[in-house]
């Protein structure tokens, strides 16, 4: 954990334009890279990218992956982000999706890995967004290529903090899970889509641990879901390696190729080594 809670937004805002120019000079982009990277740059991403993806080239998403998030984060603690996947035939299926909030103290929100025949076409979750930030998703297709899309989210104003609203409740029901299986005609699902849509909810404070105790000057230890596996029967649907940028009570709504009659199993593990497991039938739940 590399806490930088003292970064102040005004400084960053003032700096962003200046830094953009400075960093272009400081981190020259080779002509080859520049051609590949046809997406807008941001100063933070330029410095972050090598840490996450090394010197691998990243292409524009070109429809392989699409991201949607509100332009303004209404509640900094709960920012819905929606990902749609359409890899087409050339690139092969999407193996991994990395979700990043550039300006958060721990930018990598989650890494999702999909089972070979899971057929995940849509994934929605909720993020904490601390400051004005790009939220980006990078998909790795079977051919080994990376494809990136991003959207800019303005932080919510004022007193909406990316913190727990009801801390006692969050701890009291730790690890409780809920799975909803949506009927095929539910709002928000594609018409004529044969995939099944589900929503997994896990009660967990997903505490960022980055806040400093004003009295003791110690940092509160982080406590979050770090691993999650969703499977159907013996078939892997997806795994998630999570971070503190996933909202309290992690929530995942996704569409995939469901095999009728096979149970959905979920295993989650948090940073204190606590394991949470549950399973459900895959028939639509009463709404």
């Amino acid at each position: 954990m590399n806490p930088h809670p003292h970064r102040t937004r005004n400084a960053r805002d003032c700096l962003s334009l200046v830094l953009f120019t400075v960093l272009l000079g400081a981190f020259p982009i080779s002509p080859g890279q520049a051609e590949e990277t046809s997406v807008p740059e941001s100063a933070t991403w330029s410095s972050l990218k090598p840490d996450v993806f090394g010197n691998r080239g990243i292409e524009a998403a070109s429809g392989i992956i699409a991201i949607d998030a509100p332009k303004r984060a209404e509640d900094a603690a709960i920012v819905p982000v929606d990902l749609k996947f359409n890899p087409g035939k050339a690139a092969g299926r999407i193996k991994v999706v990395t979700l990043i909030v550039d300006e958060n103290p721990s930018p990598v929100a989650a890494v999702f890995k999909f089972g070979p025949d899971a057929g995940v076409t849509h994934l929605a979750t909720r993020l904490r967004v601390n400051a004005y930030s790009y939220v980006r998703a990078i998909a790795e297709t079977e051919d080994g290529k990376l494809h990136m899309t991003q959207t800019f989210v303005k932080a919510s104003g004022g007193c909406s903090a990316p913190a727990m609203k009801n801390q006692d409740e969050a701890m009291a029901s730790l690890g409780k899970m809920k799975l909803r299986v949506f009927p095929p005609n539910a709002p928000g699902t594609e018409a004529m889509n044969r995939a099944t849509e589900m929503q997994l909810m896990i009660r967990h404070p997903n505490n960022s641990g980055l806040q400093m105790d004003q009295l003791t000057r110690y940092y509160i230890p982080a406590h979050f879901i770090r691993g999650l596996t969703i499977s159907q029967g013996n078939r892997l649907i997806m795994t998630m390696e999570g971070g503190i940028s996933i909202s309290e009570d992690p929530n995942f709504r996704f569409e995939f190729d469901s095999k009728q009659g096979e149970e959905i199993k979920v295993e989650a593990v948090d940073t204190e080594g606590m394991k949470f497991e549950n399973e459900w039938p895959s028939e639509p739940s009463a709404l």
């Binding site: 937004r9 805002d13 903090a161 727990m164 801390q167 806040q211 400093m212 004003q214």
Partner: peptide
């Protein structure tokens, strides 16, 4: 407890306005 988890954020998030 609430101020511990929000204080730093409040101090930075109001700086702009």
């Amino acid at each position: 407890r609430a101020l511990v988890s929000r204080g730093e954020f409040y101090l930075s998030s109001y700086r702009e306005s």
